[in-house]
């Protein structure tokens, strides 16, 4: 076990735990943001640099501070380590820098992006970004690609987190998609636009932190905050069958994995569940899904409304407006 202190809060964690995992164990507002790290994908993290923190004391044994800011997702804790996240102006400034870098070539087309509302880059920009851009050159652009009938690749929005490639490598058995070219000309693509032909390929949509990989069948159907996430399950031979349905009225617009509070899939789901079971009768509904408190969809208060509906049979006007 190792004791680590992050912004004054201490916790004992098993050896080998990363600073980011320790921060998530502590919880609260003090967890570094992560755009590329994904706990369920091996070797993920380290690329985006948003989770950088300052190690002001290395360990009890060697109390020297680390010379540079470190990615908390790829740095393991040492006993007695002291870390500064939000309490370090240096960290906050560097993080603002990273956010700016991530945004300079992002199209900022949130008004027409299906990911808007559940986009991690949106959240990150809101929390750590500047109101004005200093970048006044043309932004990088790519043609949109359909990866088979279900997945849309909108490379212009990609922030190169590598998560989808790791999904392709680690949970599907014949990777046909990867990182091409280099530097700021890098792009995610499939080999000569081949279809990703695998039962679990749809999970690339769930791991994508932005709107680069989206569900083609849900395209422009609804803003995410107008849909109701419901936990549901079915008997599935390929996966656990535990999913979140995104409903509008009686219609199932989209099926995704269930995401935890860090936005990560709890379990991978198969393409049959995701793309082919779009009827409400395909599913056993468990109830409303608790969603990420950061996301705009949680502001919709539909749960309260639903509860009121159930209690009084009639929603109250002020609840609908989101007032307390």
């Amino acid at each position: 076990m190792a004791k680590v202190t992050i912004d004054g809060q201490s916790i004992e964690v098993p050896d080998g735990t990363t600073i980011l995992q320790a921060a998530r164990m502590i919880g609260g507002d003090n967890v570094p943001p992560a755009m590329c790290y994904y706990s369920k994908l091996k070797t993920s993290g380290g690329y985006c640099r948003t989770c950088i923190v300052k190690v002001s004391k290395g360990s009890d044994k060697d109390p020297r501070p680390m010379p540079k800011l470190v990615p908390s997702c790829r740095t393991t804790v040492m006993d007695g380590m002291e870390v500064q996240n939000n309490t370090s102006p240096e960290v906050l400034e560097a993080r603002r820098g990273v956010v700016e870098f991530l945004l300079i070539n992002h199209p900022l087309d949130c008004p027409i992006c299906d990911q808007a509302g559940e986009c991690h880059l949106q959240d990150l920009g809101y929390e750590n970004g500047a109101a004005k851009t200093r970048y006044d050159f043309p932004r990088r652009k790519f043609e949109m690609i359909d990866i088979g009938p279900y997945i849309k690749l909108h490379m212009t929005r990609c922030i190169m987190c590598f998560r989808c490639i790791k999904v392709a490598d680690q949970i599907t058995d014949n990777r046909s998609q990867g990182m091409l070219f280099r530097g700021d000309a890098s792009e995610i693509s499939t080999y000569i636009e081949k279809v990703i032909d695998n039962d679990f390929s749809g999970n690339v949509i769930d791991v994508c932190p932005v709107g680069a990989l989206t569900d083609r069948m849900n395209r422009f159907k609804s803003r995410v905050w107008f849909t109701k996430p419901m936990d549901a399950h079915r008997d599935c031979k390929k996966c656990s069958g535990k999913v979140t349905l995104w409903e509008k009225g009686e219609e199932v617009l989209r099926v995704t994995s269930r995401k935890d509070k860090w936005g990560e899939a709890e379990e991978w789901i198969c393409n049959e569940c995701r793309f082919e079971k779009k009827h409400i009768n395909d599913w056993v509904i468990e109830g409303p899904r608790q969603v990420d408190p950061h996301s705009v969809i949680s502001l919709n208060h539909y749960q309260n409304v639903l509860k009121l509906k159930l209690e009084s049979g009639k929603p109250q006007k002020q609840m609908l407006l989101g007032k307390k």
Binding site: Y47, C48, F101, D184, A185, S186
Partner: peptide
């Protein structure tokens, strides 16, 4: 720049 991490990929 190899393009792996954001500051170098975008900043250069």
């Amino acid at each position: 720049s190899c393009g792996q991490c954001s500051p170098c990929r975008e900043g250069t």
